Each structure stands twice: as C-alpha cells, then as structure tokens.
Computed example of a mutant assay.
Amino acid sequence: MFNLWIALAANLVCITVLVYAVYFPRYQRRDLAIAYVCLNVGIMLVTMLLSGSGAGMGLGLGLFGVLSIIRLRSDTLTQGEIGYYFAALVLGLMNGLHPDPAWLSPVLSAALVAVLYLADHPRIAPRTRRQSITLDRAYANEVELRDALESLLGGPVTRIEVISLDVVRDMTVADVRYKTPTPAALAAKSSASIGSTESNPMAGTEPALSTADLEAVLFDASDATSAAAPLHAQSHS
C-alpha cells in the first residue's frame, strides 16, 4: 500500500511538471495539455485496478493501445507532441504498476521528465526548421531549386526532398530542412538596406519628367486649347 501512495504522488507531480512546466510553455496548446493529464491519470487508475484483479494485464494494455492509436489519428500532432503523448502514457503505466522497491517509480518518472526536458530544449538546434513549400515553377535542376529556396527562406538549406514535380502546371512541392539567418546576418541586411536608401534618397519615388516629355505635355495642352477655342466662340455667337 505504501508503494501505491508513493507512485500516485510521483505520477501527479511528474505529469504536472511535464505538462505545465515543460510542454505548455513551449507549444502553447491547452487542449493537448488537458488530454495529456487525462490520459495519464486514466491509464494509471485502470492499470492499478487491473494489477489487483484477476483480469489479464495484456488485455488491459491492448485496449489502451487501441485507444491511443484512435486518439493519435483523430487530430494532427507534430512529432514532438507525439513524444509527450507517449511520455504521459508511460508515466501512467509505470506508476500504476507501482513496482518494488518504493523509490523505483519516482526515480524512473523523474528521469523520464528530465530526458524529455533536455531532448526538447529550445537551445538544441534553435535555428533548424522544416517546411513543406509549394513553388510556382517546375525546378528539375536541384541547384536552381536550392538557390530559389534559399532566396525565399533567407537562410541555408540543409536538405531538400522533392515531393512532387509537375511540369504541366509548372509547380514544385518540396519538403525543406533549413536554418534561419542569425541575428547578426539580419542586422547586417537591415543596415545595408537602410544605407542604400540613404545614399539614394530618390529611390522608391517616381522619376522627374524629362525635357522631351515636358514639351510633349505642353504641346498636347496647347492643341487641346486651340481645339476648344472655336467651340467657345460659337457658344458666344
């Protein structure tokens, strides 16, 4: 009985830290935070009941496996969110079994939370990104495709997987791994654009009319005035 209470306390503390101190500040999804807590507590309670009854543990774990697959297929989750999902499931199963000695479940639960905290830390590869991009041109040449993607994304492209190349509709769909530009590069680019604007203060404004254009405008205006003069005279007569 002592092992049960220790495991229950360890599970509640670890799932609270995992969801509300690690997951939610990084992903900001309240619906999944609630789902993780409900899944964890529900699995732990049912595992405790099955471990103390005559029902087979294999049957109970199989049912929860089916329910987990249904839950994962009902919404779009990122791979990181799936990792948190299975961590919540493992915490519930491990503490629901409350094995001997009593310190084993709390130690393993804390180790799981610590590993997930470190593995998903924002400082690990902070500039690495992944996107599925659709381009309005069919790029059969990988060098041209890489140049176009780097110009679009503003950073170095590390890997390209062409998903679809449609030469009829002139379209390319690619799965791209890239790195965002560093703050120093962004600052240099911003200062360069500001310097070019200061060196050419007329940039972005409409050019002045040339002498030939001005003469043409005056000539058209004089023609319009001479054409309107007879009409004005007829109206007075």
Rank of each mutant, 00 (worst) to 15 (best):
N3G: 08
N3K: 11
W5K: 09
A7T: 04
L8E: 09
L8W: 01
A9I: 00
V13A: 15
V17C: 08
L18K: 03
F24Q: 11
F24Y: 14
D31Q: 12
L32V: 03
A33T: 01
I34R: 13
A35N: 01
Y36F: 15
V37D: 05
L39C: 09
G42N: 04
G42S: 10
S53M: 10
G58V: 07
G58C: 07
L59F: 09
L61G: 00
G62H: 02
G62C: 10
L63K: 01
L63Q: 04
V66Q: 01
S68M: 14
S68D: 02
S68G: 15
I69F: 15
R71F: 15
L72I: 05
S74W: 00
T76D: 06
L77R: 06
T78V: 04
T78W: 05
T78Y: 07
Q79F: 11
E81K: 05
Y85P: 01
A88Y: 01
V90L: 15
G92N: 04
L93I: 13
G96Q: 04
L97A: 12
L97Q: 07
H98R: 09
P101W: 12
A102E: 10
W103S: 09
L104K: 12
V107C: 08
S109H: 02
A110H: 03
L112W: 05
V113C: 05
A114N: 03
V115G: 04
V115W: 14
L116W: 05
L118G: 05
A119T: 10
H121D: 11
P122I: 00
I124V: 12
R127G: 14
R129P: 03
R129E: 09
R130M: 10
Q131M: 06
Q131F: 00
L135S: 05
L135N: 04
A140N: 08
A140F: 08
N141V: 15
E142Y: 09
E144T: 12
E144G: 13
R146A: 12
E150G: 12
E150C: 09
G155V: 02
V157C: 07
V157S: 06
I160P: 05
E161Q: 11
V162A: 02
I163P: 07
S164H: 08
D166L: 02
V167W: 00
V167A: 12
R169H: 10
M171G: 08
V173S: 04
V173H: 02
A174L: 01
V176I: 07
Y178L: 04
T182I: 00
L186E: 13
A187S: 13
A188K: 14
K189D: 14
S190E: 13
S191L: 13
A192P: 12
A192C: 06
G195V: 03
G195R: 15
G195F: 04
T197N: 07
T197K: 13
S199M: 10
S199R: 15
A203M: 12
A203S: 12
T205R: 13
E206K: 14
A208E: 14
L209R: 15
S210K: 10
T211R: 15
A212L: 11
L214S: 12
A216Q: 14
L218P: 00
A221G: 06
S222N: 12
A224G: 02
A224W: 00
T225I: 12
T225S: 08
T225H: 03
A227D: 10
A228F: 00
P230T: 05
H232V: 10
Q234N: 09
Q234V: 09
H236E: 11
H236K: 11
S237H: 13
